[in-house]
Design a protein around this nucleic acid. Structure first.
Length: 438
RNA sequence: GGAGAGGUGGCAGAGUGGUCGAAUGUGCAUGAUUGGAAAUCAUGUGUAUCCGCAAGGGUACCGAGGGUUCGAAUCCCUCCCUCUCCGCCA
């Protein structure tokens, strides 16, 4: 969420940034100045009447205490009430309108974010590793996985429908090995604290990180016998998390963090659940796009002045996983049109997939600045004194485990259809060096 | 799921309709005292928002949301959370 006062004082900048995202400022901001003025006027009016009521009520109390008759004053105050209720309702309605309007405005992208409409306008920042030369035709992971008996998409469909996977034998163990390998590296060398959060969260949490209200249709909601009402954020409903970002960032919702404890770095392994509404027909083969996938996430709470540097560090932490696994990748700086709702700046890491001869996103590392912190009310006291300020939040995949799994299959495949295990994973695989067909 | 007890400021803990944004203790900050410190004393010490150039003033907040009342921390309703006992359960 953007700061109301900031929007008021920088309206043309906000409009310009919205246009850069491909959003329509008129639709999002409406007649901002008018609403803002009417809201403030209504609040002032209502509060002035409340002050009068409070004053009269106190006089009533004083009369009663000294045993005098207060009937006249009570009648007068009662008469005041009707008008007050009206003013109060108007003020509350305008305030709510402003709140909802602000909640739907995306974050402003930073100036170094390139202008662009779509994925095609993202900029390659760097490329790491070289794509392997194959002396045979590289196969896609779904063929490799099915042949090796470690991936069963047919039976997964029987159990749960399309976009689910069953991993088996060495395939299941490879997934588990990747999770352990990633968590171990992040919690030791990279200094993150491991979190194992709930896999279900309430709508307050989803509002905090920005998934609600705009992206409700991308989420799985548990049926509590109630409906989601945009603008109402409950603490007693349940949604499946689309990413660990939600529970981990919301750990500190409505809290004031100690300056001396910052920056705080958390890593968490969780499954992620996504409805993939609007992705019908896309990536239907293989396990690129699933309703459930596993992910190791990195989350940071930092002081505003250090969020840029921490963003670079966090991205490097994700890249390190790819480098240790010796998977070629490139780092993309997302353009304004492709940057997510809550993010001010995002790097995507794309891994090379020889079976499909293309780069695919395997990690997304974002700086949200104060956008999420403002929604979730996460603050700190700079220097331990004075006014509370919002922290900056960051997060990134480190990495998406399912996509790492399939990248290993495609990059490490041999002519006979077997798959070598990357060196760094072998200890996690009980010494296994190669997955071969049964 | 059933029965009961609770949720008040950084913490502890009073307050059951008015003088309560809230006693008291403690913590913290500043000052006095001291060679320095401890102790002591004094003063101050929440958040958000609205008006205002500012000084300052108003409003709201005692788990959350509604309601009753001229007036609610206090009474009523719904919900959330914590604790105890029972039931169920991995």
């Amino acid at each position: 969420m953007l700061d109301l006062a900031f929007v008021r004082n920088n309206l043309s900048l906000v409009e310009e940034k919205l246009r850069a995202r491909g959003a329509d400022p008129a639709a999002l901001l409406g007649d901002f100045h008018s609403l803002d003025a009417r809201r403030r006027e209504a609040i002032t009016q209502s509060e002035q009447w409340k002050a009068r009521r409070n004053d009269l009520s106190q006089q009533v109390g004083q009369l009663k205490r000294t045993g005098q008759d207060a009937t006249a004053l009570m009648e007068e105050t009662k008469a005041l009430k009707e008008r007050l209720d009206e003013l109060d309702a108007t003020a509350a309605a305008l305030d709510e309108q402003m709140r909802q309007s602000l909640a739907r405005i995306p974050n402003l992208t930073r100036d170094e974010v390139p202008a662009g409409k779509s994925e095609a306008d993202n900029v390659v920042v760097k490329t790491w590793g070289t794509a392997r030369e194959f002396e045979f035709e590289a196969k896609p992971h779904w063929e490799l996985g099915e042949k090796l008996g470690i991936l069963d998409l047919e039976r997964a469909a029987k159990l749960s429908g399309a976009r689910f996977a069953v991993y088996k034998g060495a395939g299941a163990r490879l997934e588990r090995a990747l999770i352990s390998f990633m968590l171990d590296l992040h919690t030791t060398t990279h200094g993150y604290t491991e979190i194992l959060p709930p896999f279900m969260v309430n709508s307050k949490s989803l509002f905090g990180t920005g998934q609600l209200p705009k992206f409700a249709e991308d989420l799985f909601r548990c049926d509590d016998g109630t409906e989601f009402v945009p603008g109402e954020y409950r603490d007693n409903d349940h949604w499946l998390i689309p990413t660990a970002e939600v529970p981990v960032t919301n750990l500190y919702r409505d809290e004031i963090l100690e300056d001396s404890k910052l920056p705080i770095s958390f890593t968490a392994y969780t499954p992620c659940f996504r409805a993939e509404a609007g992705a019908a027909g896309r990536d239907t083969r293989g396990i690129i796009r699933q309703h459930q996938f596993q992910k190791v996430e990195l989350v940071k709470f930092v002081r505003p002045e250090e969020s840029d540097a921490e963003h670079e560090r966090l991205t490097r932490h994700a890249e390190t996983i790819l480098e240790l696994l010796e998977l070629p990748y490139r780092r993309m700086l997302l353009c304004s049109g492709d940057t997510g709702f809550s993010a001010a700046k995002t790097y995507d890491l794309e891994v090379w997939l020889p079976g499909q001869a293309l780069y695919r996103e395997i990690s997304s590392c974002s700086n949200f600045e104060a956008f999420q912190a403002r929604r979730a009310n996460i603050r700190y006291k700079p220097g331990g004194k004075g006014k509370n300020e919002f922290v900056h939040t960051l997060n990134g995949s480190g990495l998406a485990v399912g996509r790492t799994w399939l990248a290993i299959l495609e990059n490490y495949q041999m002519a006979d259809g077997s798959v070598r295990i990357p060196e760094v994973l072998r200890a996690y695989m009980g010494g296994l060096e190669r997955i071969v067909a049964p």
